[in-house]
Write a protein that binds this DNA or RNA. Structure first.
Lengths: 224, 224
DNA sequence: TTCGTACACCGTACGTCGTACGCTGTACTA
DNA sequence: TAGTACAGCGTACGACGTACGGTGTACGAA
């Protein structure tokens, strides 16, 4: 067997853990997590399947690393503003990032050990809350509540078959309403009709709930 | 080839869509969703793999049906109480059910069309909110906020490597703190220490946030 | 100059997966 | 008695993750 292309032409074409994981994220974005296989990933990198195992122990570890890449994209809460603005900022960023990588949401359920970017994020959020006057326990409550809201929203949003208000209006007429007999689901019909007429934007829905949560959390704080 | 066991011995041993889906749920509970294969499921039912395809078109449809079985387990909001109690009741039930079937959370992200049990649940919740005096749009907001919180909480809880307060205390000492250098993660260290000492119960965490959300939602209501 | 070793990568092979296709025996109807 | 629907199975195919055992190159030591 000859060494026909053993050495890559340039060092930036060489494999690396970074390149492998980033390309995996791209592939998952394009094709969904079910479309991500070691062979296809290797193909996208112009390499053989088994070469990937030099950089990741197995596919599980690859998925863990992918999740952490996603966390790296999320903005940390800015330090120079009030806590509500800081939390709103990072929550909005989280929603955007998870909307960009919807496969990541479903993956989080099954992987138990947080990566370094995840930990950095948690630390920054906790620091922000503590400095704003939340006692340790209340900061924990706030953390859970905010994260639950953001992840849950992203989860629901990912399972929506539309992205924009216009698409929803079409969808409501063509898909939803036909499968909702008005006598069995009167209230869902009412909602669908009103929302289709009023125009419906997931981004607005998100900030509405977020602001409600932030306001409610204010009561847990010991003002500084 | 003879017909050695072609006919099942009794009718309750015969396959049926119901039996297939319920056994799939049981299998996923035991082994996780990755452990659920058509062959293994057929094995658990004492049947051949291809027999399952008489009852489900493909694995995707099976997963959809499994999700709906999970939704059937969730209690509908009781009608005879105030809206907050009703919502608390169904939220607590949802958390319990999702904790019992953690694989269901990750699955929801990828399936877009809700099953009948899912629709019944949504209808009942919307009805409860509307009757309690929430205008259509506010009921939608409440729905999103509550569902986001519940699903997001379940998602985070599923990725916790412990179930009880005691397990957490052990975990914190043995696993968390060692990988959290105090100088890099001072606030996470503080939290872990305080929580391990105080005892930490996910169920309490859940109701704390839930009550905060319910109280915040009260302001969206037009009292009747 | 030679040689040993670490590096980066790959081919083959095994067992498992979802499922297309075609077959079987049973029950029932005409 | 024949025909048909039902319920279920065996085989086969292509794709999957990955264990194992290679290969050529680079480089430091002798």
């Amino acid at each position: 067997m000859s060494a026909r292309e053993q050495r890559p032409v340039a060092s930036d074409a060489a494999l690396s853990r970074q390149r492998v994981v980033v390309e995996a994220v791209r592939l998952a974005d394009r094709e969904g997590v079910d479309g991500l296989s070691m062979r296809r990933l290797a193909g996208a990198l112009g390499a053989g399947a088994m070469s990937l195992y030099y950089y990741v122990a197995n596919k599980e570890e690859l998925l863990d690393a992918m999740i952490d890449v996603v966390f790296e994209e999320i903005e940390l809460p800015p330090e120079e503003t009030d806590w509500q603005s800081a939390m709103r900022c990072r929550a909005v960023s989280t929603r955007q990032v998870l909307a960009r990588h919807p496969w990541a949401i479903g993956l989080m359920e099954s992987r138990t050990s947080p990566g370094p970017a995840n930990l950095r994020h948690r630390e920054a959020v906790t620091a922000c809350l503590r400095k704003a006057g939340f006692p340790v326990l209340m900061a924990t409550h706030a953390n859970w509540l905010l994260d639950s809201y953001v992840y849950g929203f992203a989860l629901q949003e990912a399972s929506l078959p539309f992205d924009t208000a216009d698409e929803f209006a079409d969808m409501a007429e063509d898909v939803y309403l036909p499968q909702l007999p008005p006598d069995e689901f009167p209230y869902l019909n009412e909602s669908a009709a009103v929302l289709a007429a009023a125009g419906y934007d997931p981004a607005e829905e998100f900030t509405f709930g977020l602001d409600l949560v932030l306001a409610a959390l204010e009561s847990l704080r010991v003002p500084t």
